[in-house]
Design a protein around this nucleic acid. Structure first.
Lengths: 210, 210
DNA sequence: TGTACATCAGTGAACGCGCGTTCACTGATGTAC
DNA sequence: TGTACATCAGTGAACGCGCGTTCACTGATGTAC
């Protein structure tokens, strides 16, 4: 996907088994979901024995966690690029919502791993940190719309976090429906759904406090 | 859950194994998700041998399909009750969105089975029909807001279906986030989230055609 | 009321499968001299 | 430049496990007479 043909720096034997396994795992998750991923099948696809992965990963969950970290970083990068296009917080959230849908559509495996692999974050500090970086990117934006101290009718009183979650939730639902094919298929469907996400985000921001 | 203590009509041996298996399966799906459900564990919980379920269900997927049918019927009943409270299509959609969230929160296992068990609908005609009944209940409502022939900028030109999907998608996202604990836990969080869903639905309806 | 019988729900053992993980090993690599 | 050696990535076989499904069976039930 990202590498040109096949690097093959030839380290020891396989040379790049670690990355080959990560790539195979990503493809596998794309086909079968996070729970359908098995080390055995990933090994098979990378052309090595089932024991080989244990030279690079402590266990199945550790490999998955590695992918999840890449997932969060991909989200952070894409969302950062999306919100950099405007200074208006409402438009930034609209762009974020569209980028959320796009990420889910273009990197379904990474998206699913971050969202529903059920990884134990207390076991992987780096994963936890990567996830936090995504929130930290977005929170300042909603804070401008709902300054701290603004106790809404909401959950724990953090109106800003609540606003962010509502925007993210609507983008999430649209992304899931898009991936189920409910909005059609192909590039056009993706563009339509991005637009729907952006519009819904604006509507939520404008209705804030109502 | 629904039966008072335990019916035990004592038919032949177990008496009510079919329902006992369905109940065990539902609990299991609630704990581990649709993919975590196994016939073996369900048998164990019902107190019978692993071969016993085959006297009542053709295979694992058939048992799951049976639950999925109950899931769709539960949705239909709840959504029908929700939309019966008003004659205004916008309010009907708001009530539907709230009911969607409530169903996901109160019947997480049934919700997950209908949404992500990956059942082959062409294999189970009754399942397919039960799903259709849910759409058929809701489509007339959105048709009043976006009469057929209204070609929006949307997907396949059906603006009514598109409106319904967008409302459902936002409710879906909120339901998923609620269940992940992102809106807090308990009755209060559910009530809050239902309200968010209703408000978002209204916002989407009002922004229609924009 | 009593007996013979057909039915069929549930048993227990077995099958083949794919999984995660471990283990002693081997043989190519890079390095020290 | 050549040789000896330590390293360590990958092997292949094995383990125990839980799964879905099949099979011949058994024994309680309901029914016909």
């Amino acid at each position: 996907m990202s590498s040109p043909v096949k690097p093959r720096p030839v380290g020891h034997h396989h040379g790049d088994l670690r990355n080959a396994l990560l790539r195979a795992a990503l493809a596998l998750v794309g086909e079968r979901g996070p729970h359908g991923f098995t080390l055995a099948e990933a090994s098979r696809r990378a052309g090595v024995s089932v024991a080989a992965p244990y030279k690079h990963f402590a266990d199945r969950e550790t490999l998955l966690a590695e992918l999840a970290i890449r997932g969060y970083r991909g989200q952070r990068d894409r969302f950062a690029a999306a919100v950099s296009g405007s200074a208006d917080p409402c438009e930034q959230l609209a762009s974020f919502a569209a980028a959320y849908v796009r990420f889910a559509a273009e990197e379904p495996a990474l998206f699913d791993i971050t969202f529903s692999a059920g990884l134990d974050k207390s076991r992987f500090a780096e994963l936890s940190a990567a996830g936090d970086e995504v929130s930290e990117l977005l929170l300042p934006i909603v804070r401008r719309l709902a300054p701290a101290g603004d106790t809404d009718t909401d959950t724990d009183g953090d109106a800003a976090l609540d606003l962010l979650l509502r925007v993210a939730a609507s983008a999430h639902g649209l992304a899931v429906f898009l991936r189920q094919g409910l909005f059609g298929i192909g590039r056009g469907a993706l563009a339509d759904t991005e637009e729907k996400a952006a519009r819904t985000a604006r509507a939520i921001v404008r209705a804030r406090g109502v």
